[in-house]
Simulated assay, not measured.
Amino acid sequence: MFKLYSLLALSIMMSSAFAGVKKVEPITSYGGFTYFGSYEPEKPKSPLDIPKNIRSQLIQHLVKRLGSEFYSSLTFNGGQIVNIGELYEMEPNVKNHEWEVHSFDLHFELSKPEIGIQSYIAQIQLRQDGSIINEINLPDFSKNPEKLKIYSLSDAYNKSQESGFDTEHVNVTLAYDTKTDNLVWKFEQRTYDDGLTMVYKNIEISAHSGEIIKEYQSHGIR
C-alpha cells in the first residue's frame, strides 16, 4: 500500500549540437515522496513552515555537515510533514510497516548549470524530535572539503567516451553513493535488446576526482 516513489536521479538523453561535437545538456533530478494511502501529508512551501525548533536544529546540522557557504547555495524545495498521530488513525496498518515513518522529509535544490547540474534534489528525513532517519544525500564536506570541487558533466562525458561509450546513445544520472559518501556520474548505454530482455553497459565516474570507479553490465526485462 505504501510506496516510495524515488526519482532521485532522472536520466536524460544527450543530443548533438552539430556533427562531431556533443552538446551536453545539464541534468535534472527530482526528490522522492512517500505515498501514505488515504493520508495526505502537509507540503511545506518554505522553511518557515517547519516548526522553529526543528528548523533551527536542521540548519545547525546542515551547516556543520556541508559548510555555511555550500548550505547557503541550496534552495529549499519542499517535501513532506507527517502528523504521525493522524497517519495512524487513517492508516493503522502503517504501524506494522518495516520502515520507520518520518515526520519530516525535507528537500533542497542544488543548481550549478555551469558544470552540468540544472537541478539536483537532496533530501533528509527526520523524526518528530528532529533526529535523523536518513541523512541528506550530499557528501560530508566538513570532513572532506576536497569534495567541494565537482567534476563537470562535460568532462565526465568525455571520460565515458574514452571508455568506448556511444555518445549518441547514452543516458547519464547524478547519484549519491552512501557507502563512499561521494556524488557519482553514472552513464548507461543499451547494448542489446531482443524485445524482451535488455543488456546495458555502465560506467561510474567520481563527481569529485573524475576517477573511473567501476564499469559493469546490467540487465533488464520488459
Rank of each mutant, 00 (worst) to 15 (best):
E91N: 14
L106G: 00
T178E: 11
G37W: 07
T34L: 14
F36S: 02
T75S: 14
Y192P: 05
S11C: 09
E215G: 08
F104P: 00
P26Q: 00
S72M: 06
S6D: 11
M14K: 06
F18K: 08
Q217L: 12
S152R: 04
S103Q: 04
M90Q: 15
H169G: 04
F36K: 02
Y39R: 00
D49Q: 05
N77I: 01
T167W: 08
Y5W: 14
A19W: 03
Q189Y: 07
G195I: 11
S29M: 07
N96K: 15
M14G: 00
L110F: 04
T197Q: 15
I50L: 01
Y151Q: 08
K3F: 12
I81F: 10
E211I: 07
H97G: 07
I221M: 14
K149G: 10
K22D: 15
E89R: 13
N144V: 12
V184H: 05
Q161K: 15
Q125E: 10
L62K: 01
I121V: 12
S218C: 09
G164T: 04
S56C: 00
R222S: 10
V82W: 01
E40Q: 13
S29E: 06
V101Q: 02
E109L: 14
S131P: 07
F33C: 04
V172K: 01
F70W: 11
W99N: 09
E146D: 10
E162D: 11
I84E: 04
Y5G: 13
P47H: 04
P41R: 01
H61A: 10
G67D: 08
V21P: 02
D177I: 04
R65D: 05
Y39P: 01
S142E: 10
A207E: 02
L62N: 02
T173P: 02
G164P: 02
K43S: 08
E204S: 10
I221E: 14
S46L: 05
I12F: 09
F104R: 01
I27W: 00
T197A: 11
L110V: 11
Q60S: 12
E91W: 06
A175Y: 06
